[in-house]
Amino acid sequence: MTTFKLIINGKTLKGEITIEAVDAAEAEKIFKQYANDNGIDGEWTYDDATKTFTVTE
Score class of each variant (00 low, 15 high):
54 T>D: 06
7 I>H: 09
42 G>H: 13
20 E>M: 05
8 I>W: 11
2 T>C: 02
23 D>R: 02
54 T>F: 01
20 E>D: 12
43 E>K: 09
9 N>T: 14
29 K>M: 11
30 I>Q: 07
1 M>W: 04
24 A>E: 04
1 M>D: 10
19 I>E: 06
18 T>P: 04
28 E>S: 06
43 E>M: 11
7 I>W: 15
33 Q>F: 08
2 T>M: 11
3 T>S: 08
46 Y>T: 02
32 K>R: 05
15 G>V: 06
10 G>A: 14
28 E>M: 11
28 E>Y: 09
51 K>F: 07
20 E>F: 02
15 G>S: 12
33 Q>A: 12
5 K>D: 10
54 T>N: 07
24 A>G: 10
31 F>G: 15
14 K>P: 06
13 L>M: 13
51 K>D: 02
3 T>W: 10
49 A>S: 13
38 N>P: 01
22 V>E: 06
11 K>H: 03
55 V>A: 03
5 K>V: 07
46 Y>N: 01
10 G>N: 14
25 A>M: 14
31 F>I: 13
5 K>I: 05
26 E>T: 10
49 A>V: 11
6 L>R: 00
18 T>E: 15
22 V>K: 04
35 A>T: 15
52 T>W: 11
10 G>H: 07
5 K>F: 10
48 D>G: 10
40 I>N: 12
5 K>S: 09
57 E>H: 15
23 D>S: 06
17 I>N: 13
39 G>Q: 14
53 F>V: 01
8 I>N: 03
12 T>A: 09
48 D>F: 06
46 Y>L: 08
21 A>G: 02
50 T>M: 09
14 K>F: 07
45 T>S: 12
35 A>M: 03
42 G>T: 02
21 A>D: 06
45 T>F: 09
46 Y>I: 08
49 A>P: 13
38 N>R: 15
41 D>E: 15
41 D>G: 11
8 I>P: 01
15 G>M: 05
6 L>Y: 01
34 Y>Q: 03
36 N>M: 15
23 D>Y: 11
18 T>M: 09
19 I>Q: 06
34 Y>D: 01
30 I>D: 05
3 T>D: 14
5 K>Y: 05
28 E>Q: 07
21 A>C: 02
57 E>K: 08
41 D>R: 12
51 K>W: 06
35 A>K: 04
57 E>Q: 15
3 T>A: 07
46 Y>P: 00
45 T>C: 05
29 K>R: 08
30 I>K: 10
45 T>Q: 12
36 N>H: 14
16 E>D: 02
44 W>N: 00
51 K>G: 04
47 D>M: 03
11 K>Q: 03
49 A>H: 14
17 I>D: 03
14 K>G: 10
17 I>G: 04
26 E>C: 02
25 A>S: 15
35 A>V: 10
51 K>V: 09
54 T>Y: 12
46 Y>H: 05
1 M>C: 05
16 E>A: 12
43 E>W: 05
8 I>Y: 14
40 I>Q: 07
56 T>K: 13
41 D>P: 11
8 I>C: 03
4 F>C: 01
26 E>F: 09
19 I>V: 15
9 N>C: 03
57 E>N: 14
19 I>S: 04
36 N>R: 10
57 E>P: 10
52 T>N: 10
20 E>Y: 02
38 N>Q: 13
45 T>A: 03
47 D>Y: 08
38 N>A: 12
34 Y>N: 06
8 I>T: 07
54 T>A: 11
36 N>A: 10
32 K>P: 00
55 V>M: 12
47 D>P: 00
29 K>S: 06
25 A>F: 12
54 T>I: 14
48 D>Q: 09
5 K>N: 03
41 D>A: 14
18 T>S: 10
1 M>H: 15
45 T>K: 11
48 D>Y: 04
20 E>R: 01
2 T>V: 15
6 L>K: 00
54 T>K: 07
21 A>F: 03
55 V>G: 01
28 E>I: 10
5 K>C: 02
8 I>R: 02
29 K>N: 04
1 M>N: 09
32 K>W: 08
49 A>I: 08
47 D>E: 02
28 E>R: 15
48 D>K: 02
22 V>Y: 02
6 L>A: 08
33 Q>W: 03
56 T>H: 10
15 G>Y: 08
46 Y>D: 00
25 A>Q: 11
6 L>D: 00
29 K>A: 04
43 E>L: 13
19 I>R: 01
42 G>R: 01
21 A>P: 00
40 I>W: 11
47 D>S: 08
49 A>E: 12
32 K>G: 04
49 A>T: 07
20 E>Q: 06
30 I>A: 04
9 N>P: 04
10 G>C: 01
44 W>Y: 03
7 I>E: 07
38 N>V: 02
11 K>A: 04
11 K>N: 13
15 G>L: 14
52 T>G: 07
43 E>F: 02
3 T>C: 02
24 A>I: 10
32 K>A: 05
44 W>H: 01
33 Q>E: 03
52 T>F: 15
24 A>P: 14
15 G>K: 15
10 G>T: 09
31 F>L: 11
54 T>G: 07
7 I>M: 12
2 T>Q: 11
36 N>G: 15
44 W>V: 13
33 Q>S: 11
37 D>S: 15
27 A>G: 13
40 I>K: 06
17 I>T: 10
44 W>R: 00
15 G>H: 07
40 I>R: 02
13 L>F: 12
56 T>M: 08
17 I>A: 06
50 T>Q: 05
4 F>A: 01
41 D>C: 06
20 E>W: 03
38 N>G: 04
4 F>G: 00
39 G>C: 02
38 N>T: 07
40 I>V: 04
24 A>N: 13
46 Y>Q: 03
28 E>V: 15
11 K>R: 03
34 Y>V: 11
24 A>D: 08
21 A>E: 02
35 A>H: 01
16 E>W: 07
46 Y>R: 07
50 T>N: 09
48 D>I: 06
49 A>L: 14
55 V>T: 10
30 I>S: 06
45 T>M: 15
1 M>E: 11
4 F>V: 03
37 D>T: 15
12 T>W: 08
26 E>K: 10
1 M>K: 05
53 F>M: 12
33 Q>M: 13
41 D>M: 05
55 V>H: 02
48 D>M: 08
46 Y>E: 01
21 A>N: 15
12 T>Y: 07
55 V>I: 10
1 M>G: 15
28 E>L: 12
8 I>F: 15
33 Q>Y: 08
23 D>A: 11
9 N>L: 15
25 A>G: 09
7 I>P: 00
45 T>H: 06
27 A>K: 00
57 E>Y: 07
6 L>V: 05
41 D>F: 08
3 T>K: 04
35 A>G: 08
51 K>T: 10
41 D>I: 09
24 A>F: 14
17 I>W: 01
30 I>N: 03
56 T>D: 06
36 N>E: 11
9 N>K: 12
49 A>K: 11
1 M>P: 15
49 A>G: 09
11 K>Y: 11
24 A>Y: 12
50 T>D: 06
11 K>L: 07
53 F>G: 00
35 A>Q: 06
39 G>Y: 11
45 T>P: 00
15 G>E: 07
26 E>Q: 01
39 G>L: 07
44 W>G: 00
35 A>P: 00
22 V>R: 04
25 A>E: 08
34 Y>I: 10
23 D>E: 11
8 I>G: 03
40 I>P: 01
38 N>L: 06
4 F>H: 09
53 F>H: 06
9 N>M: 13
29 K>C: 02
36 N>C: 03
55 V>E: 00
29 K>D: 08
1 M>A: 07
49 A>C: 02
8 I>Q: 10
4 F>P: 00
18 T>F: 07
11 K>E: 06
39 G>F: 09
3 T>G: 12
18 T>I: 07
52 T>D: 05
10 G>F: 05
17 I>H: 09
20 E>H: 02
53 F>I: 02
29 K>G: 03
48 D>L: 06
55 V>F: 05
23 D>H: 07
26 E>D: 14
14 K>T: 04
57 E>G: 08
50 T>A: 15
7 I>K: 13
8 I>E: 01
45 T>W: 07
10 G>K: 07
